[in-house]
Design a protein around this nucleic acid. Structure first.
Length: 768
DNA sequence: CAGTGAGCGAGCTTCCGCTTGACTT
């Protein structure tokens, strides 16, 4: 073999191999091939921060193969991405494969086109050690922060917690937003709207002033009664709209969330599928740049589909802070492919990417914006209305970026009007409106905020969200709003009516809420490790990484000046700070006269009666799902101690209501049945029995077939992942090509036999 | 799988960024 080319992604390897011809073998490293082992710190803080890199288990085979191939190759071309991480990947490859400088060449390209790759091969260089060192600094800093902070949390808050440069700031954003919302006081005011009809077209105008209360609004409506309305001013102004830049990872996640309702991880999964099928370019990128080839084919396509006048070639440049620009923007591989085969999600996401990319290369939309002012004969106040007419649709023909602002109103067309024209108001309304608290984060808007702060990378946005949810710092939830009353006035046909209407306020769909744990951990970290929790921390260290990359700074001395004071703080905090429990005194238990607290315990949020250092031991109870340490009342806390309770007998066995790890339940003869939304304090015996019967029926429905095999029972059942065979405590997969309904006892035994002696399924508790 | 929360102490947990599959009851 003459040439071995190593890239990061296997899909990329396949494409490039086609460009390079048969003298080149192209292989993938599947990302990083060496890393710090996760079991230990693996950074020698006594010895100039020497990192201890190892080849992880799941990369052993990759490295083995690359080592073999590189031995027989004349030249090894390291073609990982041209950013900090990519440079480090090349360096680790060189080290791990034992490559000599003579036979190794480093090449880079930003777009996967034949000319870009051939050009890269013509211009090889050697590995940029400064850039590698910047990556080592990044890696070592993250390890030191994560692996020194997390153990402090285990000691001072709760085991199994984690902290890090990225995740802890993400949680802080959510915690602080929640507190802004909690502290928010809605102010109401009266908005006045007038409806006019001209030549059969109705339009709505809003009074330039809002009134503080109903009385003022009513007084104004009384003035309007019998007044004359006329157009006092009419302004027409041309305006234009410009298309959004092509997709990056972050903007794709935001648009897929707004328009398709995809979670951040779903978007990435579907995009990965499209990428592997060669339909789109790489999906983890912070670049908005399009290759010349893409610009040209987009232009061609737009001309063909919509006409030359719709085309406008635009080059975009990134403005985001940490952008490293190793790839192109996310775009269709072939601009001429308007639709793809695949499942619905793939089709929809591709459609979004195609439209966004095409629109980014289209002409501005030209509009005419009209503002009309309507005077009132009995008042100095005016009504105004805005209308918009599209003169040339331009990119709007294809695509308009979504918005997160739920209150944005669509501007429609206004009828033809002239100054001085008399108008007749068909209706004038006074509506009480409330100011809105800041919006809670969605997954996608959190990603946007993190990107804005330069925190995290395209490959980590989705995993970061998974982590903070897995640690139970944050929950993604929908919550029902509450009914709110608002005042409403209407002036119609010379009479003013007054009403109190109701609306639903504060409803949330798939938003991120902090948990009690998230709040306690954030408060603890902000108090003790303010530097790292600072929103600018990443930006600051990034600046230093850049200096290292430019050869102006030594990476170990940068780490040293960070680590020395940081380590001292961790030691000091471990020694001197009290346990962080978020304890709150709720009041006094009337039965015992002892204090009742809400606090965070080893197993999560709980309430406690009495103190630990008292003679009488304290009593404890976990909070229930939906309850929070911040707002649980004394009464609710005392209710928690009323469980478990007996509510009667059924089939000669006791019925006991309790609340466990998986929510409220009724226990009957060793079996547990979830009671769902029923209140465990008031559920009746009849309801409980009904639920038990339902559960029995459902369990019965799961059984497709049942065989007696001597002493044992073998069942064919239908579960979440399709049909399976159950014997004793063990479950067995049914091969894909087998019809579950037609399985005989012999068939089942054969399948069980084949899958063999699997380890007996044991509960986690039993293992312990 | 429906408990636990004091104290004792062993042994466990943990980061961010680069990449894909294997596997699920």
């Amino acid at each position: 073999m003459k040439n071995l080319v190593i890239v990061e992604s296997p899909a990329k390897a396949k494409t490039i191999e086609g460009f390079l011809g048969k003298d080149f073998t192209v292989k993938s490293s599947f990302g990083h091939i060496r890393d710090l082992p996760s079991k230990q710190l693996s950074v020698d803080v006594e010895n100039n921060y020497a990192p201890d890199y190892v080849i992880p288990k799941d990369k052993e085979n990759v490295v083995k193969e690359l080592r073999k191939l590189s031995k027989s190759a004349e030249t090894v071309w390291l073609a990982s991405d041209e950013d900090r991480e990519g440079e480090a990947i090349s360096w680790h490859l060189q080290e791990a494969l034992g490559l000599t400088a003579e036979k190794t060449k480093r090449i880079v390209f930003h777009e996967i086109t034949k000319s870009a790759i051939l050009n890269a091969v013509e211009n090889p260089r050697s590995i940029n050690v400064d850039l590698v060192n910047a990556q080592q600094a990044r890696r070592v800093l993250d390890r030191l922060v994560g692996y020194e902070l997390s153990p402090v949390l285990w000691k001072k808050v709760k085991p199994n917690l984690s902290a890090g440069r990225v995740q802890s700031v993400a949680v802080r954003l959510i915690v602080e937003r929640e507190r802004e919302i909690e502290d928010f006081n809605a102010v109401s005011s009266f908005r006045v709207l007038a409806y006019f009809t001209v030549n059969g077209t109705e339009f709505r105008a809003e009074l330039s002033k809002r009134f503080d209360d109903l009385k003022e609004a009513k007084a104004f409506l009384e003035k309007c009664n019998g007044a004359d309305f006329s157009v006092s001013d009419l302004q027409k102004k041309p305006a234009k709209r410009t298309p959004a830049a092509p997709f990056t990872t972050s903007t794709l996640q935001q648009e897929a969330s707004r328009k398709l309702g995809f979670s951040v991880s779903r978007t990435m999964r579907v995009a990965q599928d499209l990428y592997e099928q060669g339909k789109i370019t790489y999906m983890r990128t912070d670049s908005v740049n399009l290759s010349d080839l893409a610009l040209n084919t987009a232009k061609e396509e737009i001309g063909k589909l919509y006409g030359e006048e719709y085309s406008k070639t635009r080059k975009y440049s990134s403005k985001s802070k940490g952008a490293q620009e190793a790839h192109e923007a996310i775009r269709p591989t072939y601009m001429s492919v308007q639709k793809v085969d695949g499942d619905a999600a793939q089709k929809r996401l591709y459609d979004l990417i195609w439209k966004r990319t095409i629109a980014s290369q289209m002409a501005d939309a030209e509009l005419e914006r009209t503002t009309v002012t309507v005077g009132v004969s009995t008042s100095d106040l005016n009504f105004t209305a805005q209308g918009e007419v599209i003169k040339f649709d331009g990119f709007l023909k294809v695509y308009l970026e979504g918005t997160d602002d739920e209150n944005e109103e669509q501007k429609g067309m206004l009828p033809d009007l002239s100054v001085g024209q008399q108008l007749k108001a068909t209706k004038i309304e006074g509506i009480e409106r409330f100011s809105l608290p800041p919006a809670r984060y969605t997954e996608a808007s959190l990603v946007r905020k993190l990107e804005e702060l330069g925190i995290g990378r395209p490959s980590t946005y989705a995993p970061t969200i998974s982590t903070i949810i897995a640690r139970n710092y944050v929950v993604k939830e929908s919550r029902e709003g509450v009914e709110r009353k608002y005042g409403y006035l209407a002036l119609v046909d010379g009479a003013i009516s007054e009403e109190v209407k109701t609306e639903i306020a504060g409803a949330e769909k798939s938003k991120l809420f902090p948990t009690d744990i998230g709040k306690v951990v954030t408060d603890f970290l902000v108090e003790n490790f303010g530097e790292i929790l600072n929103y600018n921390f990443t930006a600051q260290v990034e600046k230093e990484f850049d200096e290292i990359a430019e050869g102006q700074k030594e990476w170990t001395s940068m780490i040293d000046s960070f680590y020395k004071p940081f380590h001292e703080t961790t030691v000091d905090t471990e020694k001197n700070s009290k346990k962080a429990t978020g304890e709150r005194l709720l009041g006094v238990d009337p039965d015992s006269g002892r204090n009742v607290y809400a606090r965070l315990g080893r197993f999560g949020p709980m309430v406690q009666i009495g103190e630990a250092d008292n003679e009488e031991k304290p009593k404890f109870s976990s909070l229930r799902a939906g309850q929070s340490m911040d707002d649980v009342t004394l009464e609710e806390a005392l209710d928690l101690f009323k469980l478990p309770r007996e509510i009667g007998e059924f089939e000669g066995e006791k019925l006991v209501i309790g609340v466990g790890k998986y929510g409220p339940y009724v226990r009957h003869n060793k079996s547990f049945v979830s009671i769902g939304d029923e209140d465990p304090l008031s559920i009746t015996k009849e309801t409980a029995i009904e639920l038990i019967k339902q559960k029995r029926e459902e369990a019965h429905k799961m059984i497709i077939n049942e065989f007696q095999d001597g002493e044992e029972v073998i069942q064919v059942k239908i579960g979440r992942y399709g049909p399976y065979i159950a014997k004793g405590r063990n479950n067995y997969r049914i091969p894909k090509d087998v019809e579950a309904n037609s399985l005989s006892l012999e068939d089942c035994k054969e399948i069980i036999e084949k899958q063999g002696d699997r380890p007996k399924r044991v509960s986690k508790r039993a293992k312990k």
